[in-house]
Design a protein around this nucleic acid. Structure first.
Ligand SMILES: [Mn+2]
Ligand SMILES: [Mn+2]
Ligand SMILES: [Zn+2]
Ligand SMILES: [Zn+2]
Lengths: 144, 144
DNA sequence: ATTTTAACTGAAAATTATTTTCAATTATTT
DNA sequence: AAATAATTGAAAATAATTTTCAGTTAAAAT
């Protein structure tokens, strides 16, 4: 369910944006890391490795653009920076250990149902949500 | 279901912390604003109004302390800063309009059920969660 | 193909949120 | 009242993000 480059091109162009090499590289990095949400800095570092002259500013700008067109989701680990992950259509949420920082991902989700009810109830048109759980992982429950 | 000053005092002292005037004032502000999560800056401004010599640094430190002892929750509106609200024991989540920024609150929540299942499923001990919905409010759905 | 043009870029500067440092102060215990 | 460890606020430091701006480029028009 990953976005294809063609689909990406279409989405970008149809809104008057240009498909630049920088945008393509950043998208590729996000796809490659579909299992862990990256910070802008994290994206930047990986972009640099796979070569390329891409500025950090452009990373920030591109991530926000991708979010706007629905290609990435924006998530929070409460660690002081934003994170982005490719939007694969499936809901998934995170379990973040307050002790060791370990992050687990889960696909269990009742949110869709909740969202439908909320929309009916409040007339709000929901396009994104952000859900994270904080607590203590298996390991940290024992020590400390 | 608001926390009482006695309960607060007990919670603080039992962990070796001191009950200072600053901490008391900050707690009062949070109780007074139980319906909208405040940023540290927001707390600071209100503290200043109700008089008091309290430094912004102390506000940051106190909010984090209150979170640690379970007196406040930490929420995110994706607007670049952390927010805190008094923990009244009830779950409530937010609907944040991506267009006008309006924030609505809802009590509808399936999270408790989800949390139980997750805990069983993952052996993670969950102590907090953060859920927000983003989209477009009634008004913004029409214009734009 | 060449021109045109608005979108895009990166470096540097600016801004904003948050954390750290440290010397002085204060709440609680003795 | 003294002892002591916790707490405080101002200032400095750090970290994340945004803005500015002059130069570049993708895509549309010729
Ligand atoms: Mn946070
Ligand atoms: Mn965010
Ligand atoms: Zn852990
Ligand atoms: Zn709105």
């Amino acid at each position: 369910m990953d976005i294809s480059i063609d689909e990406f091109t279409r989405k970008i162009r149809s809104r008057g944006y240009k498909l630049t090499p920088q945008r393509r590289v950043i998208l590729e990095i996000l796809i490659k890391n579909k299992d862990n949400p990256l910070t802008p800095e994290g994206v930047y570092k990986q972009v640099k490795i796979s070569c390329s002259e891409v500025g950090l500013t452009t990373v920030y700008r591109t991530l926000e653009l991708l979010r706007k067109i629905g290609v990435v989701n924006h998530v929070h680990f409460h660690d002081g920076c934003d994170r982005y992950e490719i939007n694969d259509g499936k809901p998934h949420h995170y379990l973040i250990c307050l002790n060791c920082g370990k992050v687990e991902r889960t696909n269990l989700c009742f949110i869709d149902k909740m969202q439908k009810i909320l929309e009916k109830d409040t007339a709000f048109k929901i396009t994104e949500h952000c859900l994270s759980f904080f607590g203590y992982c298996r390991f940290c429950q024992l020590r400390k």
